[in-house]
Design a protein around this nucleic acid. Structure first.
Lengths: 202, 202, 202, 202
DNA sequence: TCGTAAGCGAGACGGTACGTCGAGTCTTGCT
DNA sequence: AGCAAGACTCGACGTACCGTCTCGCTTACGA
């Protein structure tokens, strides 16, 4: 008899948003302080001033909790200077900086590794990771709009061409990547993207 | 230097090579069967028919053991057809295949994640990971030797340009990557590498 | 008696007598079904169709609730045949029967054990336990009135002399006491009570 | 190839007798300090300087552990003065004293109550409780040997006749029983035992 | 007749202990 | 000295209840 449309609020005391936020905050703090492998639900509960049951009522285990907390983190900070090269270099540099200077760089692969054995969780993490490189895709879109690049560009591939080589080094080779390779990398990647779009050498 | 022979062979019963191999085998088997997060030293010992102490006598913890077992795995199978494009496409396709169809794809990031919090272990893992993409570098070296590419090429960067975009997708986006993007990717990467080596558009 | 009425009736909704009864009933049912150690307030609330708060509004904890529920149970069913021996034997037999065939036998000592660490609760339980053997005392009183026993009898002691040996066996030795010892026990106890009342052998 | 007859000592490190003893000691200490209901396995483990697993390896739960610890306690201290009345009075007085002055008196009924729902555990506790009143039975045996009592006496019943009324009061009525009733009780009980043995009044 | 004050079922809250499991270490007797 | 076996301490796991605290509601009373 009304236009309420609400979900009936279900009986009983509603879940505390305070507790929810405190848990996510504590998770991120501890992630930074002790790293993912040493992260414990017990520790999170203590830090958040919350009972363990309150955590398990919301998340079935440590992993989805960390994924949600991780999702709260700011993504790649978007740069929009009007110039594609400048945009990409700026964003990649900030990318390298974050992974060099915060323990969050180690959370990334841990999460991926732990999710790999559980497709359900993978589905939670994947879109989140995709979302995080969206600023790169946007930079290419703007370049296309400005006429810097032809409209036939594969935006996803272009983004992966610039972020892939960085990611591969940052995760799988020597820690503390030197950010000086960023300009060279951007140059090579853009050269390939531009030329092969026009037909390439093949 | 006369009676040197071995490193003094030290007194007592020598370590069993059988046990050593059995442990590494059991580790790989279990890695495949249950995945890295569910891997336990106790399980490895049982499977190998070995006491836990025998494992800890050789490896200080689970991680270096897994790293050594991981190192036993065959690397990227080298392709040498005389044509750079063919070589790269063949190797990347096998790369995608392995990560799509074996649990090895999950071990990789797990290892990296766990190592990230212990630099000592990172030093064990890093060279191993570098070694695994060596076939890619070799393909570029052969191309340079054949004159397909100029000698001023940055081989490491070149390798990362082709493997990076693949790796980034295989690990961080939708599982089960479609291998059809391989030729397009190789084309774009080579275009960039070739052109920017000659001075590029910058 | 004019304006006194009740104890101010206090404002607000009165406590539901339905809920009260449902709680006590549920308590007894569960006591029988799962036993005292496995009895939970949560279970009682669910069974009674009542919120936990409604229970805690009336009883400070599980123990006083169980004590009150326990108090609702029928006491030793009084036998009055005109003959002391017959009365005692009848009542003791029913005593043995109840403790052999219902979980009430386990509630008794559990209650006592839990009360022992809280004198306040002990004060609630004690009179209740005293009340339950009152029929035995009455039987002796009637025997005195009939002249079967002299008036100098210590009624409490007499009651304990007949119920004590039974209780001690029912609680602390082999479960499922054989009721055939009842007549012999009554005989011995009465013999002692009668003789020592007249001065005894001391 | 020998007459060893041992149980082969089974492989592996043998269970530590030190730990075993430390656990039982800690259990008794805590039983006295905090009482049975507040006794926790975690507390015992901490006090004993032992891991929880070491406790659960030996006892399936708190109850059998407490039963075993309880079994270590000294029984009713035997009195042998050559006179039945003196023996009984002495032992009963010590019985009353223990229950009046130590928290162990509360452990007794708690144990019985918790065992009542598990026949398997009851079988562990029962013989132990029987054993504890053995000194009373012995006193009657000596009296028979001395000719104080006829040989047709039912020793078990006799023991229960003296301890039952005490037990029933100590457990189920007012805490802190007055030991002055002991002589009177012994007198009444013995009177009954002696007279009904000769045929009684029935 | 209506507010106001309590009681109501429901269920989340911070805690505490449970019983299990795995890590890495230690102690048997045997090789 | 190494070996398999298995107990050791430690500490986190995820679950279950405790006794308390909101929720939105119902129910009586007194203004």
């Amino acid at each position: 008899m009304s236009t309420d449309g609400q979900a009936a609020t279900s009986a009983g005391r509603p879940r505390s948003e305070e507790a929810h936020a405190a848990i996510l905050d504590a998770t991120l703090e501890l992630l930074v302080e002790v790293g993912y492998p040493a992260l414990t639900v017990e520790g999170i509960a203590t830090r958040a001033g919350v009972g363990k049951a309150t955590i398990y009522r919301r998340w079935s285990s440590k992993l989805p909790l960390v994924i949600e907390a991780f999702g709260q983190l700011p993504a790649l900070e978007e740069a929009d200077t009007g110039d594609l090269v400048a945009d990409l270099e700026s964003m990649l540099r900030s990318y390298v900086r974050v992974f060099n200077s915060t323990p969050l760089g180690s959370v990334y692969p841990s999460l991926v590794g732990d999710c790999a054995n559980d497709p359900e969780l993978g589905k939670l993490l994947s879109p989140l990771l995709m979302e995080r490189r969206r600023p790169l895709v946007h930079a290419f879109e703007r370049a296309v709009a400005r006429g810097e690049l032809g409209p036939e560009i594969d935006l996803e591939l272009a983004a992966d061409m610039v972020v892939g080589p960085i990611a591969v080094r940052v995760f799988f080779s020597d820690r503390r990547l030197n950010p000086r390779i960023v300009p060279r990398l951007v140059q090579v990647a853009l050269e390939g993207i531009r030329n092969s779009a026009r037909g390439g050498s093949a």
